[in-house]
C-alpha cells in the first residue's frame, strides 16, 4: 500500500499555507496579482488533468485546451443564456466535457502516438471553428460577453473570494488525482503506458482505460474552464489558440508522471508571461527554448531534475561519511 513520506506531507502543508496566505499578502484589492493567482489554480488543474493523460496513461494530446473551451462555454451558456444556478452550470459543464472527452477516448483506443496527436490537434481546431461559426449560441468571433460573477446569498464574489473557491477546487482535484493514481485504476493506467501488451495479458482492458482516462481528464479540464470563464467574465475562441501548447509545456517541463510535476510546471510556466511582459513578442520562443533545454538536461522535467539532484547530493553525503564507518566495521 502506498505511503507518502512525512517530508512530502510537510512540503504539501507549506505549499497550502503559502497558497492560503498569498492573496492576503498581495492585498485583496490587487486585481492584477489576484488574477495571476487564480490563473495558477486553473492552469494547475489543467496541467494535472493533462498529466493523467500523457504522464500516467501515455496518451498524447495536442488539443487539451479544447476541453477547457468546451467547459468554459458550456458553463457560460448554462449560467447566463439559460439562467441556471452556477453550481448546476458547473456540474453541467463538467458532464459535457466528460462526454466530449469520451469521444476523443474512442480515437485514443484506435490510434497511437503521432496519429493521436494529429487527431487531438484537429479536434481542437474543429472546436474553435464551431465556436466561431455558431454565433447564436457562443457569440461567434465577438466572444461571449458578460459572464456573471458568482453570487452566494446575494453577495457578489470579487477576485479575492473567487481565488479561495478556485484554490479549494484545485486542492480537491489534486486529492482526486492522488487517490486515483494510488489505486487499482492508477496502476492500470501506468501499466497501459509502460507495456500495453503485458497490461492486456494481466487482465487490464487497455482500450477501456484509455477511454475512461480521456473522459476524466476532459472533465477536469472542463472544470478549469469554468473557473476561467468566471474569472475572465468573457470568452472568445482565440483565447484558447495557444493554450494547448502552453499546457503541454507546463506538463512536460514540470515533470510527467508525478503529482508535483504539474504544480512546478504551472508555477514556472504560469509566471513566465508576467516576468517577460516587455518581451511578450518573444514569449513563444522562450517556451520553445525552455522545452529544448529541459528535454536535454532534465528529461524527467524540472521536478524530476530537482529530485535527481537532491538524490545525488544525498548519496554523496552518505558516501563521504561511509569510509570511516567501514573502517570501524573492519575492526
Amino acid at each position: 500500500m502506498h505511503k507518502t513520506k512525512k517530508s512530502t506531507w510537510v512540503v504539501i502543508a507549506v505549499m497550502i499555507a503559502v497558497a492560503l496566505a498569498a492573496p492576503v499578502a498581495v492585498g485583496p484589492k490587487n486585481n492584477y496579482m489576484l488574477n495571476i493567482l487564480i490563473s495558477y489554480c486553473y492552469f494547475g488543474i489543467l496541467a494535472a488533468s493533462l498529466n493523467l493523460l500523457i504522464g500516467y496513461t501515455g496518451q498524447m494530446s495536442l488539443g487539451h485546451a479544447a476541453f477547457m473551451a468546451i467547459g468554459g462555454y458550456a458553463y457560460a451558456i448554462l449560467n447566463k443564456t439559460m439562467g441556471l444556478h452556477f453550481l448546476i452550470a458547473i456540474v453541467g459543464a463538467v458532464v459535457i466535457s466528460f462526454i466530449c472527452g469520451l469521444f476523443i477516448g474512442l480515437a485514443c483506443s484506435k490510434l497511437s502516438t503521432i496519429f493521436l496527436a494529429m487527431t487531438t490537434s484537429g479536434f481542437a481546431k474543429a472546436v474553435t471553428l464551431i465556436i466561431i461559426n455558431e454565433k447564436w449560441l457562443t457569440g461567434g468571433a465577438n466572444g461571449f460577453t458578460g459572464i456573471p460573477k458568482l453570487t452566494v446569498f446575494g453577495h457578489k464574489m470579487g477576485n479575492f473570494e473567487l481565488y479561495y473557491v478556485a484554490l479549494a477546487i484545485t486542492l480537491l482535484v489534486f486529492l482526486f488525482c492522488y487517490r486515483l493514481i494510488y489505486s487499482k485504476t492508477g496502476r492500470a493506467m501506468q501499466a497501459v503506458r509502460n507495456a500495453p501488451i503485458a497490461a492486456a495479458a494481466m487482465g487490464i482492458n487497455v482500450n477501456g482505460y484509455k477511454f475512461l482516462v480521456c473522459g476524466i481528464s476532459a472533465a477536469l479540464a472542463g472544470l478549469a474552464g469554468c473557473i476561467y470563464a468566471v474569472n475572465m467574465n468573457y470568452l472568445s475562441a482565440d483565447m484558447f489558440n495557444k493554450t494547448s501548447i502552453t499546457l503541454l509545456t507546463m506538463t512536460v517541463c514540470g515533470g510527467m508522471g508525478s503529482l508535483f510535476g504539474p504544480v512546478v510546471g504551472t508555477l514556472v510556466i504560469g509566471t513566465l508571461p508576467e516576468l517577460l511582459r516587455t518581451f511578450s513578442g518573444y514569449l513563444d520562443g522562450v517556451y520553445g527554448v525552455m522545452i529544448i533545454l529541459v528535454m536535454l538536461f532534465m528529461p524527467e522535467g524540472i521536478y524530476g531534475g530537482i529530485k535527481n539532484l537532491a538524490g545525488k547530493v544525498m548519496t554523496r553525503k552518505n558516501a563521504a561519511s561511509q569510509p570511516g564507518k567501514e573502517a570501524q566495521d573492519g575492526k
Binding site: 485504476t185 492500470a188 509502460n194 475512461l212
Partner: peptide, 23 residues
C-alpha cells in the same frame, strides 16, 4: 515488465482482475 514501477506494484497489477474496487 512495467519498467518504471516497483516489483511490488508490478505484481499488484497482476492481481488486477481479482481486485474489487471502482473509480
Amino acid at each position: 515488465l512495467f519498467e518504471s514501477m516497483s516489483a511490488l506494484e508490478n505484481v499488484m497489477i497482476g492481481h488486477h482482475t481479482r481486485t474489487d474496487s471502482t473509480v
